[in-house]
Every structure is written in structure tokens, then in C-alpha cells.
Amino acid sequence: MPNLERIEDVMWQLSQKQYLADRSLATAIFLCLKLERPLFLEGEPGVGKTAVAQAMAQVLNVPLIRLQCYEGIDRESALYEWNYPKQLLAIRLYESSSEHSRALNQESLYQAEFLLKRPLFEALMPEGPAPVLLIDEIDRSDDEFEAFLLEILSEFQISIPELGTIRAQEKPFIVLTSNRTRDVHDALKRRCIYHWLDYPSFGRELEIVELKVPGLDQQLRRDVVQLVQRLRQEPLDKKPGVAEALDWAHALEALMTERLSPEVFADTLGVLLKDREDINRVQEGNLIAQMIKELESDDPTVS
């Protein structure tokens, strides 16, 4: 376990794992570690919510267990399930075999060997150290599942009727993410530390691109970030996130672009914007040329 006694330590350790966190995010993570509470992350798509959990797993040097929520996810697919085919098979085998040395009863059928472990079970009863549990896009699940999660997050224990209650030896670090397609219930959030992940500032995004796409020319990188930040101010349906900025930087690197021109911008617009009407809006209004011009006029003052 690395030394995480101060907020700066958290920031530094995360940056070692290629994740650049703001101080407020680092504070939230620090508090989660100290108070042993789950972290609840909300934000627009592609701002690095999932990446936080991945980086934390690397920092703590433990495995990452991921539970992807979807509409209709239930207790069975999240926690555990009895392996019914295997149980049936065991009954059949028992019936057909001549040796009746082992009495077949309820107990022998509900044993750990017939248990199919699902992510939550694995996170509470891991084989190694307590892992990082990522419950991704919880807003997609339904209310019943939320209530069920509440029970687990507050007690860190599960009761299996046939086996009894199982309690986690060591509390896992839990990250919940949400895209805010609906409001998650207050009772669940009360148990967590809430953090709203915003789009990064210019300087921060520049650092992220520098870290992830080191091959890109410095001037080009600056232009890329500036254009992405500029695009976010437009009234777009789906604004480009950090992920799109990184994709674009990668694309420009692969195309071996040296200088951003309106043509290159127009050709690679599909990497940044994923909505036809957004693309139309940017292309129609002569926005591309205007933005490139803004870049050029800005440049001398910036550098």
C-alpha cells in the first residue's frame, strides 16, 4: 500500500499512473480512503470517470472489479447465482449411480461449488486483497437494484439464505459513476462522497494530451486543445469530452499533420463530434474557418 497520507500524495500517485487529477477530485478520493466511503462520480460522458477507478486500482495495486449496470440488472447477475444445471446434473448423477454413500440433501446441493460468483460477491469476498469495485453507469439500473446496492454499501455484508451472512473482511474501494440520465436516490448518495467531474481547464487538458499523446508537435497540441475548448462553448448536442480530444490528437498524429488547416479540421471532424446535426451546424456556419482564424490571431499573444 503506497503512502497516501496527504492530498498531495494522492495527486502524485495518480499522476504516476497517468491520471491527472484536480485538487478537488484528489480531496474526494482522499476522504473516501480515510472515511471508508464509496466515491460517487457524476459528469458528462468522456471526462474520465471510469479512468479514475482504473487509476486507483493501479495506485493501490489491487485488481479492478467492474460491474456494468444496465436496465434490468438484478441481484442474481450482480451478486451470486446458484448453478442450476450443475445442481440438476448432480441430482441425476446421484440417481443413476449405485453408490449411495453420500446422502443427497439440501445442504449438499447448496455448497460453494454450486455458487456462481458475480462481481459484487467477488468484491466483498476476494481471494487476494480487497479490490477496487467500479459500479459503472448506475443511473441505468432500476430502483430495485439501487435499493439492493444501498444494503450492500451501508453494511458491506450479504446474506445468502442457504449459506448465511457473509461479511467483507476488508472494505473495498468503491467507485460509482453516473451519466446523470436520471437522479439516483438520495439515500444512496448520502453514503458516498459526491464529486462532479467537469471538463478540464485549458492547462489541465493540455497536460493530459501531452501525457497521453507525447508524439504530437507542441504547437499542434496547443491548437488541438484550444479548438476543443472552443467547440465546447458552442451550443452542441453532444460536446466533445477529453476522450474525443485524445482521439483527435491520435488521429492527427497518425495523419502526420503539421499544421491545422480548415481542410484537415473538416476531414477529421467526425472524431470530435458524433452527431450529424452537430457536424452540420459546425460546417454550415463557416465556423471552421472562423475558429482557425481565431487560433492564428491568438497565437502570438499566447506563445
Binding site: 478537488s24 474526494a28 448518495k189 459526491y194
Partner: peptide, 12 residues
Amino acid sequence: HDVLEGLWVRSY
């Protein structure tokens, strides 16, 4: 601010 935000705030 960061501490209070993490603990007291529950939605955007």
C-alpha cells in the same frame, strides 16, 4: 470547499 462539496452535495 472541496471537503464540504464531497460530503454535503448530492447532485449537480
